[in-house]
């Protein structure tokens, strides 16, 4: 049995009205921001199913945008984010869709800029979230662990070269690839932290295209 804490029961302190549709949306935006980690020119939010149907009434749109702008779940500026100067940093657009193959509270966050990236995730209840896809790779990110994400060429010994360099206990590990020998992704959730030296070292590994060190979200 996974132990919960009494603190989980009497919090989070958040802006309302819904833990799944508001706090979850903010946290999805925050985690997507940490993954993209650049200033975008434009962000498109595609909201699905219940997120699309009840999102406006729950401030899901405001939450997603606020998260991408770096605001936390208890930030009272979220309510008026559309009129805030903060929201002038980049263009944004919302689309409301139905797709019953997707989770009831699903979203695609599409970043356009120096680099384009599509991040998909779900709000799974009580403010908990999961990022399930980055571009076409499947990943599993919940914001509960510091996470290393690598995009690299699918060649032998890549996993051992990476894990030999990080010296931190690994909580979970997930790989995916387009096809043998092509682009692949590695998603490593860590119990501790890694420093910039480790990240610089990982960049020295041949055939690593992109590295992101995604800090865990405040609970």
């Amino acid at each position: 049995m996974k132990q919960t804490s009494i603190i989980d029961i009497i919090s989070p302190v958040m802006v309302g009205p819904s833990s799944s549709h508001t706090a979850g949306a903010i946290r999805l935006g925050l985690l997507a921001r940490n993954i993209y980690n650049e200033m975008p020119d434009k962000v498109t939010f595609k909201l699905y199913n219940s997120f699309a149907q009840t999102g406006k009434g729950h401030g899901t749109d405001k939450g997603l945008l606020s998260g991408v702008l770096g605001l936390n779940v208890d930030d009272t500026r979220i309510k008026d984010i559309f009129n805030s100067d903060l929201a002038k940093e980049f263009e944004y657009e919302f689309q409301y869709l139905e797709d019953f193959n997707r989770h009831p509270n699903a979203v695609d966050i599409i970043f356009e800029g120096h680099r384009n990236m599509k991040i998909s995730g779900n709000s799974v209840g009580a403010g908990e979230i999961e990022i399930t896809n980055i571009d076409e790779f499947s990943v599993s990110l919940t914001g509960k662990y510091n996470t290393l994400l690598l995009i690299y060429k699918d060649v032998p010994n890549m996993i051992s070269r990476v894990t030999n360099s990080i010296h931190v206990n690994i909580a979970s590990f997930h790989c995916d690839r387009y096809a043998k020998g092509e682009e692949a992704s590695m998603c490593i959730c860590l119990d501790g932290e890694v420093n910039q030296k480790v990240i610089d070292f990982l960049y020295l590994i041949e055939d690593v295209y992109m590295i992101r060190y995604i800090k865990k979200l405040e609970s």
């Binding site: 029961i9 009497i10 919090s11 989070p12 302190v13 958040m14 802006v15 309302g16 009205p17 819904s18 833990s19 508001t22 706090a23 401030g59 405001k62 208890d74 009272t76 979220i78 309510k79 009580a126 403010g127």
Partner: peptide, 11 residues
Amino acid sequence: RMGKIAACPTA
């Protein structure tokens, strides 16, 4: 009205 609350146990 999107004010700040403590979810206890939920919003």
